[in-house]
Amino acid sequence: MTTNGDDATKVVPVRHYGQWVASAFMLLFVAMLVHTLFSKVPVPSGAKVCHVVNGVKTCTPELQWRFSWTLVHKYITAPEIMRGLLITLELTAIAMLGGIVIGVIVAIMRLSSNRLLSSTAWTYTWFFRGTPVYVQLFFWFGISALYPSFSIGIPFTHIALVTFSANTVIAPFTSAAIALSLNEGAYMAEIARAGLIAVDEGQSEAASSLGMNRGQTLRYVVLPQAMRVIIPPTGNELISMLKTTSLVSAVGVMDLFGAAQDIAANIYNDIPLLIVASIWYILITTILSIGQFYVERHYAKGALRSQPPTPLARLIGDVRGIVSKMRTRRVPKEVRA
């Protein structure tokens, strides 16, 4: 039996009727969604627009976008929104960096043979995963009630070298950064621990047999390999953190969401500003996801026999495939035979 010669038996693929029906419904649903997104409705004031055509006056209700696209367009790059976006990005970066540093340290402590270190690490994770991040945020914001001032001095005495007032050190932004970092540290610790224990024990044995000490083994052999396991969930955490920062508007930080809410309160209209914020969040998320793909690719070195193609390479490959197929089709039968 052949399928590629001229006298090939015709192959009839399986017909997936169920999929066809499902696809038809899906198309209908998408069409409805697009239609409603870009539909117009009468303005709330009930104003009418009148035209006189051939001496006859006809009035129709004045229309506006159902989803207030005009306002979305007006505020999408408003200075307040831009400032908020910058704060959101700063907070995300600080909280993730803090979280990763804390996470790696806590994970290493957790895997230590010293029981005091490993149980301290366990307790840390237990506490910060066990309470809501929203509550922790308010806790750090209100820390000045517990500790009106901080000093650097000798523990358990009243001897202080330097003293700061809590309210000046822990401004809303700082409290938010501390809260998010500490919380993220607990999650990153679990991710880092999973990565570290995923590296085969033979790798550290081989490193030891070369005479590397524990620090060198960790730095040059174990961590680089653990990264392959650590990166994908860390990407998730980063994207999740970007959105979690929207909680900080509750403690008075003017992040993207805070700025959007502020404008919304001024113009008595929520929806367009929520759309503005959503567009920015989804745009940043998309950029981060693309970055994640390339970072994962980098750390997959050596783990796979060949690197997966980049989306661009895949696209070029697809186009080439189609072109070459079209070329073969044009080859006359005599030549092929």
């Binding site: 033979g202 044995e205 392959r228």
Partner: peptide, 17 residues
């Protein structure tokens, strides 16, 4: 240890290098 070489049953080459 640095003065003693060791070869393992399962090679244990550093897979990221």
């Amino acid at each position: 240890r640095a003065q003693i070489g060791m070869v393992f049953q399962r090679f244990n080459l550093f897979s990221h290098l």
